[in-house]
Nucleic acid binder design. Structure first.
Lengths: 120, 120
DNA sequence: CGGTATCCCTCCCGATACTG
DNA sequence: CAGTATCGGGAGGGATACCG
């Protein structure tokens, strides 16, 4: 606020913080995904938030968006090299969190879980 | 939303996300600090937010708070072992951010900068 | 399929004043 | 020194409907 510069820790959290960006990057860590695929993977996200997060990640150079102008439109998202540099760290963070959650008896969700049929 | 469990990546970001927690952990990474010291270090933070962030970090077992009941009250904060495990992560994240900022020509702030005398 | 548009609301955060 | 108390604003997010 007083300074002109920005703290690098802040900068990073502004890029990958927020409610969904972490999970989106995580989802794309080892495969390209389409919009609808991501929407299913990041459960509970609304189209608005997904689009917004993806656009920001794209602007920040972390995600690349490719449109295939076919009759049924297809759009693929993939991580850039810059984003991939973050994977090991998110991995570390994830492991850390798993341990914490175990200690505290918090049920952890498997990332590959399919949508449950249970109505909310 | 549909699931009962929580994703570990989310869990982690809920713990260390937010506007100041990253910088607070960073500040405490290699030294114990008092309340006022932290307030000066994490520039621009209001007492309310600092207290709130510290209390949450304490609840999450990341920060330990020690009160020394002297005539002039003294309260010290330090990272727990669990929080220290996160330091390498934040360190690497910080380096990553520095690189990104250089690429984009964003002026980065040195962490040890003293308050500038420039009035806002 | 891959999104926009719109409305609404909550929670995070800021500023300021005050207290043990 | 180390915080509370109070009020208020604004960004981020949620639900739903609609569009090319």
């Amino acid at each position: 606020m007083i300074n002109e510069g920005i703290c690098s820790v802040d900068y990073a959290f502004q890029r990958i913080g927020g409610k969904y960006k972490g999970r989106i990057i995580w989802a794309l860590k080892d495969k390209v995904m389409r919009y609808g695929e991501l929407k299913r993977y990041v459960q509970g996200i609304t189209p608005k938030m997904l689009t917004q997060a993806l656009r920001e990640l794209e602007e920040d150079g972390l995600v690349q968006r490719t449109v295939y102008p076919e009759v049924l439109p297809r759009v693929e998202y993939l991580l850039t090299g810059e984003a991939k540099e973050l994977i090991p760290f998110i991995e570390l963070l994830s492991c850390w969190a798993e341990k914490q959650m175990q200690k505290r008896g918090i049920p952890s969700m498997v990332q590959h879980a399919r949508p449950m049929k249970k109505a909310m």
